[in-house]
Every structure is written in structure tokens, then in C-alpha cells.
Amino acid sequence: MSIIMNRRKLIAGLGGGLFVSGCDSWSRSDRVKAILASAEDLTMGVQRSIGGATALAREFTTADLSPEFRANGSRTADSADYQAMLANGFAGYRLRVDGLVDRPLSLSLAQLRHMPSRTQITRHDCVEGWSAIGQWTGATLGPLLDLARMRDSANYIVFHCFDTYGADNRPYYESIDLVDAFHPQTILAYDMNGGELPERHGAPIRARVERQLGYKHAKFVSRIEAVASLDDIYGGKGGYWEDVGDYAWYAGI
């Protein structure tokens, strides 16, 4: 019995060990990761087809706000330009809206504050697993794109940011498709919890893409670009984390 048990343990140990180490080499294989990532398209397709394209994210009341909204990712942008604007209360800030548009825009914060806006108290879910509830006020993205007369050839909206991330200081960026871009809760937030958007949360502007995970909500937004394809934007996968770390472009789950 003990010999059988030992052999059993050995086989189980070898089998388990081989499987787990197999998983590790598979986890480094681009081909295996592409197969695993195919589930992302399925998830997005299913979620979009059963109401995820138009449904509104739950909105909360001020009684539900997190006592402290955790700041994550970049707490500031290091560039001299950004630091000078920050010191100056973003008086010199201009949000550029360009790319596949007939009328490129360059908007000051004051102009942006006069655009159609929305205030919403929503839950922010980080890919790591934590959640925080905050209040956001900002210009709705859809009317802004209409004002810029976005062309029909545009398929994605890219958020370019002032901040860089990681040891090699890659510029942070993110992108969404037009379903999310024209969703009524997709805003360029300039206020948070009743005050101006704090530096650590992405002043002067952060994107809110309420039905997706936190890394899609680009902070320190400097420029909005309408593009036909994401292939030629930075690493080509549509976002900083998508490029450097295999994170899903569709972060709806």
C-alpha cells in the first residue's frame, strides 16, 4: 500500500508539477496568450449584445462615497510643462481634440467647463480588485466629438496623457471605441467630490469610462485623438497596460 501510495504521490507530484510548470511556459508564450485572450472578444461581444452598449452604470448618492478615494498609478506628471501648468492653476492648459476630425479643437479649462456636462456618483473598480465610490463632474465626450465634426472613418478615441509610467517612462495613454465614447456617462472629469480634480487623481482632466476597469480611465489627459485603427498608436494594443502587460483592451470584466 505504501509503495502504491508513494508511486501515486510521485505521479501526482510529477503530473501536477509538469502541469504547473507547463502553465508557466505557456503563460510566457504569445501563441497561448492569444488563445486565452480570445475569451476577451467573446466576453465583449456577449456583454455588448445583451445591453452593455447602452446600459447606464449604477449611480450612488453622496451618502455612499468612499471616505477616502484611493489614488493609484501616476500621482503626478513629471514633465516641466505639466509642472509649470500645475503651478499656474492650469491657466495655460489647452485640451486638443484632433485626428480624424474636420474641425480640430483647442479648449481651455474655462471653455471645457461651459460644454454640456454631467455629474455622476459612481463606483470605480480597479483591475487589482478594490473599489471606491466618487463623484465626478465633467464635459460629456460625445458632444465634444460632434463639435469637432468627427469623421465617419474614426473608430476609436485615444486619450493621450501628460504622465509617463514604469521604469522606461513610457507615455500613458488609453483608448475606447465609439460605443463608449458616445455613452452618456463617458465624461472628461474636471471636478471630483465637489472640488477641482486633485493632482493625484489626474488634474486637470481625467476620463471616466464608467463600465470599464480603472486603467481605462486615463488621467492627466492632454489630447484626444480620433483614429481609424489603434495599430500605429504607441505599442498598437490601445493602451499603456495593454502594450506593456497583456491587460485586456476591453476591461468590462
Binding site: 504547473v20 502553465c23 503563460s27 486565452l36 485572450a37 497596460w241 485586456a248
Partner: peptide
Amino acid sequence: YWATIPGFYSLATGRLWHFFFAW
């Protein structure tokens, strides 16, 4: 490491495995 897939720390890769096998 012996309790996780992958055996090295990668949230993104863990999510790839998780959502594929969830389906």
C-alpha cells in the same frame, strides 16, 4: 508561487487564464 497560475506574479496573465476557463 506553487498555488498560483502563472507561478510568477502577473495579474494580467492570471486574468487571461481565469476568463478563458470561466467560459
